[in-house]
């Protein structure tokens, strides 16, 4: 089985070809064209620019990825249908549809968040070999647009157990960076400065840490930093580092506590981290330490799969096919496929 995957949900144009070798996943191609440098000067993503850039890059990338065999050896075409920016998604969806119509290969629409979860399968051979029982797994999905605790009871089976009531974790990092006059994207900058700061110098709130559910709230934490800056008025470089460290600790403590409370309640056999914020070493380390104490296996994606990529979309498609959970579209049905910008992987 050989899968071509297309991912264009935000500002990366990505393509991958995934197959299986000796019982393990094997990536024949894995290409990510990032537009981050283009959008950096705007301090965020500009949808119109992102859309045009996808249009420019997707055909050359596709030719490069497929090579002279074109679609001959491809069995399935997987693509990100949502969630994401509709103006970006539409390019990947249109490309997949065109390939599907022209080649008669079956299409598989994949949820972007499910892709992030499967970046763990790409990373860890022990997940691929299926030797350990990891289900049910408590999955913490944290990114610029998402903060969710998901109970994964099997391949393609998800239950939402908690979510943010306002801002996402990645967004909170971006906005705190903005309040402190730091650059974009905020996550890597704040966590780097935090290394030089004293996390216990200033005490920021841990919103909802004792609420009797698995929901999160990060907007108030951002506002508390605003109040703090107002009161303090003048801050020096060390203060900025201390604020970054204190903020990161506050966020991490809430995330870690709720993840492990959920693990206890649902009898989790493993813990997983997924999404762009899984690149945060401090969060990863804290989850790992707690998992070690309880002797529960903990999985996080390797760095190159933390950001948006098509390999993870291919991996999600692979396990959907393997477990007979794939929604396949071919022939006339293809024309009905549209981007689904607000696609919820799981509904409470």
């Amino acid at each position: 089985m050989r899968i071509l995957a297309i991912e264009t949900s935000c500002d990366e144009t990505a393509l991958a070809i995934l197959t299986e070798r000796k019982g393990f996943l094997y990536l024949e191609k894995d290409i990510v064209y990032s537009q981050v440098d283009i959008h950096k000067k705007y301090g965020g993503v500009v949808p119109e620019v992102a859309s045009r850039k996808h249009l420019e890059t997707i055909m050359p990338l596709l030719q490069h990825t497929l090579g002279k065999n074109k679609l001959k050896n491809i069995d399935y075409i997987a693509f990100t249908q949502g969630p994401g920016l509709v103006t970006s998604l539409v390019l990947g969806v249109a490309t997949a549809k065109a390939l599907g119509l022209a080649s008669n290969k079956a299409l598989l629409p994949i949820n972007h968040l499910e892709g992030h979860i499967y970046s763990n399968w790409l990373t860890h051979q022990e997940l691929q070999s299926n030797k350990i029982n990891i289900f049910p797994s408590v999955v913490l999905v944290v990114s610029g647009g998402h903060t969710e605790l998901i109970l994964m009871t099997g391949h393609g089976q998800y239950k939402l157990i908690g979510k943010t009531l306002d801002d996402a974790v990645g967004e909170a990092f971006d906005k705190v960076a903005k309040l402190l006059g730091l650059g974009y994207p905020g996550g890597p900058i704040v966590s780097k400065l935090a290394l030089m700061g004293n996390a216990h110098k200033y005490d920021f709130p841990r919103p909802m840490i004792n609420s009797h559910n698995f929901d999160f709230s990060l907007s108030g934490l951002k506002t508390s930093i605003l109040y703090f800056l107002e009161k303090k008025q003048k801050i020096n470089q060390q203060d900025v580092a201390d604020i970054c460290a204190g903020f990161q600790l506050a966020v991490t403590e809430v995330l870690v506590k709720k993840t492990f409370l959920a693990a206890k309640k649902y009898g989790a056999k493993s813990i997983m981290l997924a999404g762009g914020v899984s690149a945060n070493t401090f969060l990863k380390q804290n989850l790992q330490n707690n998992a070690d104490k309880l002797a529960i296996p903990f999985f996080a994606p390797e760095m190159k799969f933390t950001g948006d990529n098509a390999a993870m979309i291919a991996a999600a498609a692979f396990y959907r096919l393997k477990n007979k959970k794939a929604r396949l579209f071919s022939g006339d049905k293809i024309s009905k496929l549209e981007p689904d910008a607000n696609w919820q992987l799981v509904v409470k």
Binding site: P47, P83, G84, L85, V86, S143, G144, G145, H146, K163, T164, L165, D166, D167, A168, G170, E171, S219, A341, N342
Partner: peptide, 12 residues
């Protein structure tokens, strides 16, 4: 529940 649409730009 209304969550921030910052990342996806628009929620309905």
């Amino acid at each position: 529940n209304i969550t921030s649409p910052t990342f996806v730009l628009m929620k309905i």
